[in-house]
Amino acid sequence: MKDFEHLISVWQEQPKQPRLSVDDVLKQVKKGINKLGSRVLYGIIAISVTIIFTAGLTLFAVFERRLSYIGLFVLLFGMIAYLILQIGDYRTITRQDLTLDPAAYLNSLKEYQKRRAYLHGRFYYAFALMTCLGISFYTIEVFQNKPLMFKVTYYIFCAIYILFCTFYLKDRFIQREQKRVSYLIERLERLEGQFE
């Protein structure tokens, strides 16, 4: 019984977290959401331009081998799948108004966090594989008359770049974005806890 009383006294002595200002939290969350939304929108614009360029290359360039067309179609398929996921993420983060229903907005932020984890997790490797295959098939014909040293240098550079993106940049990007989203979720949950 003595231990229980000691636990209660320690628990009661814990400093209470200061109350959050609703206006400050809403401003922080809106600023964070606008930043996340603009990054996703930039990604949508960038991949859309790339899709248009690749589609134009597929439609208007003349290749001798079917393998080049297959490579371009694989690239297009991967980019379109990525675009669809990006649009879904953008809609998830921007469809709710924070001031109308904070609880629903908190749920949409959690959904966004799960979708981004999927996009940067499992789908990234499928996208990287499609990109590698597409570029490999496409460049077979494009580099047909190039010297062997050029081909080897190009493929080594591509492999190093993909490995760098996969094992260094991707992880840093994911950690930074997850930290921002987690911070926004934590602020909203803490604010919600004040009113319960």
Results as ranks from 00 to 15, higher is better:
residue 126 A to E: 06
residue 31 K to W: 06
residue 35 K to E: 05
residue 23 D to K: 08
residue 5 E to Q: 01
residue 189 E to N: 03
residue 158 C to G: 08
residue 143 F to A: 15
residue 108 S to F: 06
residue 91 R to L: 14
residue 81 A to F: 14
residue 30 K to L: 04
residue 21 S to Y: 13
residue 103 A to M: 10
residue 74 V to P: 08
residue 67 L to H: 06
residue 16 K to G: 04
residue 124 Y to D: 05
residue 75 L to C: 03
residue 171 D to Y: 09
residue 53 F to M: 11
residue 135 I to S: 11
residue 75 L to F: 06
residue 3 D to R: 07
residue 122 R to S: 15
residue 172 R to H: 02
residue 29 V to D: 03
residue 78 G to H: 02
residue 8 I to G: 10
residue 26 L to Q: 13
residue 81 A to L: 14
residue 65 R to T: 14
residue 54 T to V: 15
residue 167 F to Y: 15
residue 62 V to A: 07
residue 76 L to G: 02
residue 169 L to V: 08
residue 32 G to Q: 04
residue 75 L to V: 05
residue 88 G to H: 02
residue 77 F to D: 00
residue 41 L to Y: 01
residue 60 F to I: 12
residue 178 Q to C: 00
residue 27 K to T: 08
residue 138 Y to C: 12
residue 193 G to I: 00
residue 102 P to Y: 07
residue 158 C to W: 13
residue 30 K to G: 06
residue 7 L to I: 02
residue 167 F to R: 09
residue 18 P to R: 01
residue 96 Q to M: 13
residue 114 K to E: 15
residue 129 L to C: 15
residue 174 I to A: 05
residue 187 R to V: 10
residue 154 Y to C: 05
residue 79 M to T: 06
residue 30 K to E: 13
residue 6 H to Q: 06
residue 55 A to R: 06
residue 152 V to Y: 09
residue 193 G to L: 00
residue 106 L to H: 05
residue 181 V to N: 01
residue 188 L to R: 02
residue 72 L to G: 12
residue 174 I to C: 05
residue 20 L to D: 00
residue 40 V to F: 05
residue 46 A to M: 07
residue 14 Q to R: 10
residue 103 A to Q: 11
residue 48 S to Y: 08
residue 83 L to G: 00
residue 87 I to N: 03
residue 63 F to I: 14
residue 183 Y to E: 03
residue 12 Q to A: 10
residue 24 D to T: 06
residue 131 T to S: 04
residue 17 Q to T: 10
residue 14 Q to Y: 04
residue 112 Y to E: 08
residue 153 T to I: 08
residue 19 R to N: 07
residue 112 Y to V: 04
residue 181 V to H: 01
residue 124 Y to T: 09
residue 10 V to D: 11
residue 73 F to C: 04
residue 58 T to C: 04
residue 68 S to I: 10
residue 142 V to Y: 12
residue 127 F to A: 11
residue 101 D to R: 15
residue 81 A to Y: 11
residue 29 V to K: 02
residue 100 L to A: 15
residue 7 L to Y: 06
residue 129 L to R: 15
residue 56 G to Q: 03
residue 191 L to P: 07
residue 77 F to H: 01
residue 140 I to D: 11
residue 21 S to K: 15
residue 20 L to S: 01
residue 110 K to F: 00
residue 16 K to T: 03
residue 43 G to V: 03
residue 114 K to A: 15
